[in-house]
Design a protein around this nucleic acid. Structure first.
Lengths: 236, 236
DNA sequence: TTGGCTATTTTGTGATCACAAAATTAGTCG
DNA sequence: CGACTAATTTTGTGATCACAAAATAGCCAA
C-alpha cells in the first residue's frame, strides 16, 4: 500500500495548480489574524457588525478553519463578542464599558510608557515626531481611518520599547476593544478638536522625564476618549 | 441508503451508541475550556509542560477540534505559550515576567476590589470568611492545590461583584499566567509563612472602607508573590 | 395588508483526513 | 562507546463534511 490508505476526499491541492506558492506553514492564520486586527484597529469593522466564519474565510480566500482559530483568539481578548447562540459580532459600546476602558487605559498605559522611557533615544523621538506630523495632516484632512492607524502607531512605537510581556498584551486588548467605537465617533464629530499631547510626550522623551511622559500619555488618553466619548454614546 | 447523499466519511455518531447524550451544542469546547483553565489555576499544569492537541483531546474524550479552539483562546490570553514551531507549552516564569505580573496585579486588582465594594454586603463577607477558614485549613495541611483553588475563589468572589467587563478579564488573564508558577513555588517552600491579609480585607468590606480594602488587596498580592517569588525564580 | 406558519438557507460545531515539518527513535559507522 | 544519519512517529495546519440550531425567506390564510 502507498501512504494514502483510505479514500482522499478533501484538500488535495494546498496551492493553485502550479507549485507557485508552497503555502508556508502557519501563513493562513497569521494572514487572517493581522487582517482582522487591522480592520478592527482602523475602524473598518463597525460595532454590531456580524462576523461570519464562511464570510470572512471567503473574503480572505482561505478555508473557514484558520478563521475559526482567529475568531476564538480575538474573542478571548474581548475584541469580538460571541453571542450565546454562537454568532460573532464586533462588540457594541456601552457607557459602563467605555468608562472602564478609560480607567484601564489610564492605569496601564502611562505606566507602560514610563517603562519604555529608558529604552527610547533621540532617534525614536524623531520617528515619533514624524508620525505626529502625519497625524496633524490626517486631522486637517479629516481622514479618520488614517488618524486611527497613525495614533495607534504613535502609542505603540513608545510601548514597544518597554519590552513588556505582560502589560503590553493587556493594552493591545484594550485598543482592540475601543478602536471600532472610536471610528464611529470620529466619523461623526470629526477629529479637528483634538488637543495634541503627543508633542508634550515627545518633549518628555527628549528630556528623559518619566513624570512628564506619564502625565502626557494620561492627558492624551483623557482628551482622546473623554472629550469625544461622552456626547456620542448610545445612551447617557 | 440513508439520507446522506454523498459518501459519509466521518462523525457518524455524535454520542455513544445509544441516544443517551444528545451532545448539546457547544458543550465540548466549554468542557475543554473549563478543564484546562482549572488545571492551570490549580497548578496541575507545570510550567514548561508540553500541551499537545491530540493528547489533550484523548485525555478529555473529545476530538482535537474543540481543543484547537481552546488552545488558541488561552494562547491569546498568554496562558499558554505557542512556540514558533507551533508546539504549545505552559509558559515558564522569568524574573522580568514575574515583576511585571506583580506590577500589573497591583495596578488592577485593588482598583477592581474597590469597584466591587459597593455591591458587597454582609452575606458576601460571611462567604469570604468561610473561604478564608478553609484557606487556613489548607495552609496548615500543606495542601497547595487546595490553597490555590480557594485563594482564587476568595479574590474572584470579591472581583465578581464589580460587574466589570474590562478589568475583570484582564485580571483573569494575569491569574492564568502566574498560577502555574505559584504552584511550583508553594510546592517547594510551602504555604506556612503566608501573612493573612484576607481577614483585613473582610474587615474593610464590613466597614465599607474602600481605602482599607484597596490596601488589604495590595498587601495580599505583595506578600503572596513578593515573599515567595524572589528566592524561587529560575535565575536572579 | 398582515400575522403566523413552514420551507429554505445560513451558520457554528464537532469530526476526520491528508500533508509537511519537526521531534524522536533506530541503526550504523567510525 | 559515542556521534551522525536515516527511518519512524508525533504533531500542528489547512481543508472538507455532516449535522443541528438559528435566522431568513416564502407562503398561505384571515
Amino acid at each position: 500500500m502507498n501512504k494514502t490508505s483510505t479514500g482522499n476526499a478533501q484538500a488535495p491541492r494546498p496551492d493553485g495548480e502550479d507549485g507557485s506558492t508552497p503555502t508556508n506553514r502557519g501563513t493562513a492564520r497569521a494572514q487572517v489574524d493581522t487582517a482582522v486586527r487591522s480592520a478592527l484597529l482602523t475602524g473598518r469593522f463597525i460595532p454590531g457588525k456580524a462576523v461570519t466564519l464562511r464570510g470572512l474565510a471567503q473574503e480572505l480566500g482561505v478555508s473557514p478553519m484558520p478563521v475559526r482559530e482567529v475568531i476564538q483568539r480575538l474573542a478571548a481578548e474581548n475584541a469580538l463578542n460571541v453571542k450565546p447562540n454562537g454568532r460573532v459580532q464586533v462588540p457594541e459600546m456601552s457607557p459602563s464599558r467605555f468608562d472602564e476602558i478609560l480607567k484601564a487605559r489610564l492605569l496601564l498605559e502611562p505606566e507602560l510608557a514610563e517603562m519604555a522611557l529608558p529604552q527610547l533615544d533621540h532617534a525614536d523621538a524623531k520617528v515619533l515626531e514624524d508620525i505626529d506630523l502625519e497625524i496633524d495632516e490626517s486631522i486637517s484632512c479629516g481622514n479618520a481611518e488614517s488618524y486611527l492607524r497613525l495614533n495607534h502607531a504613535f502609542h505603540f512605537k513608545i510601548y514597544a520599547s518597554s519590552n513588556s510581556e505582560i502589560l503590553m498584551p493587556l493594552v493591545e486588548s484594550l485598543w482592540l476593544q475601543f478602536a471600532p467605537f472610536m471610528r464611529t465617533v470620529y466619523g461623526r464629530v470629526g477629529t479637528a478638536n483634538l488637543v495634541d499631547w503627543h508633542k508634550e510626550a515627545i518633549r518628555a522623551i527628549r528630556n528623559d522625564d518619566p513624570t512628564a511622559l506619564n502625565a502626557a500619555i494620561a492627558a492624551d488618553i483623557r482628551d482622546g476618549m473623554g472629550i469625544l466619548g461622552r456626547e456620542s454614546l448610545p445612551e447617557i
